[in-house]
Write a protein that binds this DNA or RNA. Structure first.
Lengths: 243, 243
DNA sequence: GCTTATTGTTTTGTATACAAACTTTCAGTA
DNA sequence: TACTGAAAGTTTGTATACAAAACAATAAGC
């Protein structure tokens, strides 16, 4: 018995979840991690009693975690029938990339718009400066992680970067919508991170440059290109490995 | 004491929720309805014990319902601190409309693309025909409802129409993403349905016409215009009533 | 042999009970 | 009077126990 819960470093993920219960959050993060890393295979049944024993909590936190994962699309449930791991995100890769293209182009555009407003001194937003600073740290951390080839951490940093851009947009709605699909995006990304990661990371600086310059259209375009390249890289990878 | 749960016809909503538990679904739908109709005012605290008594169930289904509503953005929670009704969607109206513009333009575009494939006889998709037929019924039902000025039902039909278009796109990811914000959209829509509803309904036929013709670009454009008009109508309404 | 009813088992759904954490209140002090 | 601090009270978080529904296996009937 592999004891799935015990082998996951709960600190490895940046916990983008906005759930509620203290323990449920931790358990949910563990199960999410174990789904993404394949400990719980796609289509596999998730019995509440078994999970409760594995993660050493009662069924209640397990249920809450499963509800949260269900809303992220990582788990599917039917009343009185139980939960199972969602089919591999490979199935809706095309859709997910298209959603990212339209959503994230919009966030980049809005972020650039706000940047322009900032430089006009219109609104000296402290929160904006904080997030903008955090992005620099994320980018620097990514450079290091790539040098050390710690790709699992790169996947997390990549997610954090895209969330940060969404936060720059100033729209909580966009952030929370992005969060809804972040589970599947990260799942998908982790399948190709060794190939795409090092190539993709420098592109993030181009996105930020356009945002900083306040060029709305260009920011949207660069972000769209970025996601499109991720998509193409993903499908190229799939073509190479038709496993 | 107004007994909030008892005055909601649970059959009035088409239950777009994909939650799980039998009773939790019903309770969640009731609470959602009571939030949208203002029984639970924005910012109001939602105590689990009180809700349990009001809706005559235990705290467990209440909790599950609150989690579901939280993921829809209708409720906000903090660990050990409780839940409250989210601030009125008025706050993020601009964002919600922008999200709808980019998302629903994409669904309309994809639906048109699939329609073109259908007419080429490429894939005789039975499910497509079923949804397409359902749309005709929705449109007809809307005409009747407008004639009778039953605007609450129109809000539901409007939501069903936009969901149906998303389903025509063939992408479950788009549908579930739309579902995530459907609560707030419906909430927002219900504030302006008497004004916008009758005006907006005929536009739906233009959208479907473009989709049926397989004109991707036009379908996206018409859908975008449709949502933009809703947005403008909404803000015009807000300007008239600065309550 | 195949379909269908029936019962037994398993699993989820819900209620109750208890533990943990936050909030508020109220002294006490500077 | 304003502020710090602790303790009571309230509310959420979790565990256990029981009820209801789905699933599976078996047997009866055609």
């Amino acid at each position: 018995m592999p004891e799935p819960g015990s082998l996951s470093r709960s600190s490895s993920t940046a916990k983008p979840s906005a759930a509620s219960t203290s323990n449920s959050i931790a358990v949910g993060a563990k199960i999410r991690h174990d789904i993404i890393t394949g400990v719980h295979p796609p289509g596999g049944k998730l019995r509440e009693a078994a999970l409760a024993k594995q993660y050493d909590v009662s069924r209640i936190p397990i249920r809450e975690a499963l509800r949260s994962l269900e809303s992220e699309g990582l788990v599917e449930s039917r009343p009185y029938s139980g939960s199972m791991v969602a089919p591999s995100p490979i199935e809706d890769a095309e859709d997910l990339f298209e959603i990212r293209i339209v959503l994230e182009s919009a966030t980049a555009k809005r972020a650039a718009k706000r940047a322009a407003q900032q430089s006009n001194g219109e609104a000296p937003d402290e929160r904006w400066r904080m997030i903008r600073k955090e992005i620099n740290e994320i980018l620097a951390a990514g450079d290091i992680v790539i040098g050390e080839e710690r790709y699992e951490d790169l996947a997390v940093l990549n997610m954090r970067f895209h969330f940060a851009v969404a936060e720059l947009s100033g729209s909580l709605s966009f952030v929370s919508l992005l969060r809804q699909i972040s589970g599947k995006i990260e799942w998908l990304y982790s399948l190709n991170v060794t190939r795409r990661g090092p190539q993709a990371w420098p592109e993030h600086r181009d996105i930020i440059a356009a945002i900083d310059a306040g060029q709305e259209t260009k920011a949207a375009e660069v972000m769209g290109q970025h996601v499109r390249r991720s998509r193409d890289s993903y499908f190229a990878m799939m073509a190479d490995r038709p496993s």
